[in-house]
């Protein structure tokens, strides 16, 4: 019974994976003029996935139906057909729209914080964890034995209590 459930689960996972890939493959609108050379077209498609649609802003130009995305797909295809390499096409778009047109921001001065902040936060987390652990260690360490002076002070305190307890004993003696 258990193995049957496991099998069903596994085949479901497989089906979903296959479906996901087949949807991804149909990304581009069908009414578009594609490049005749399938190798170039495949290269153009991969490049398009790295270019941001500036109208919808969180989609690549492959995923977007906006008119500007269509035009930009046309630009990418034209340039690839003209023999430009990927970095040329990217540079062409960055000249016009800025770094933001690339879905993956470049590593440079202005984006240093963006790229390095995860490491920074990791260090901050490590610092907090270590300092916390130190406090805990300090709080749970064995107490020091009382010094002679403290022992004396304790003794006087206990002696002060004595008459009181004698009194109680007397009281108890009376009633019994």
């Amino acid at each position: 019974m258990k193995s049957l459930l496991k099998l069903t689960y596994q085949s479901l996972c497989l089906m979903m994976t296959v479906l996901a890939f087949s949807f991804a493959a149909q990304g581009v609108a069908v009414d578009e003029q594609m490049l005749d050379d399938p190798v170039q077209e495949a290269r153009a498609r991969i490049l398009m996935q790295e270019i941001r649609c500036l109208v919808c802003q969180n989609q690549s130009i492959v995923d977007s139906n906006a008119e500007l995305a269509q035009d930009l797909r046309g630009v990418v295809r034209e340039q690839i057909a003209a023999g430009k390499d990927d970095s040329d096409v990217k540079a062409y778009l960055v000249d016009r729209y800025g770094d933001w047109v690339l879905l993956k921001p470049p590593f440079k001065g202005g984006t240093l914080f963006l790229w390095l902040s995860p490491i920074l936060f990791l260090f901050m987390l490590a610092y907090v964890m270590i300092s916390q652990r130190r406090t805990v260690a300090r709080n749970t360490s064995q107490p020091q034995p009382l010094s002679a002076k403290e022992q004396a002070a304790l003794k006087t305190l206990l002696d002060k209590e004595k008459p009181d307890s004698d009194f109680k004993e007397q009281e108890q003696g009376k009633t019994s």
Binding site: V55, L68, L72, R96, Y97, G98
Partner: peptide, 13 residues
């Protein structure tokens, strides 16, 4: 009409 000069100007709309 084709919007290519718009792209050269970095126009998004």
């Amino acid at each position: 009409e084709r919007g290519r000069t718009g792209i050269d100007f970095g126009v998004t709309g």
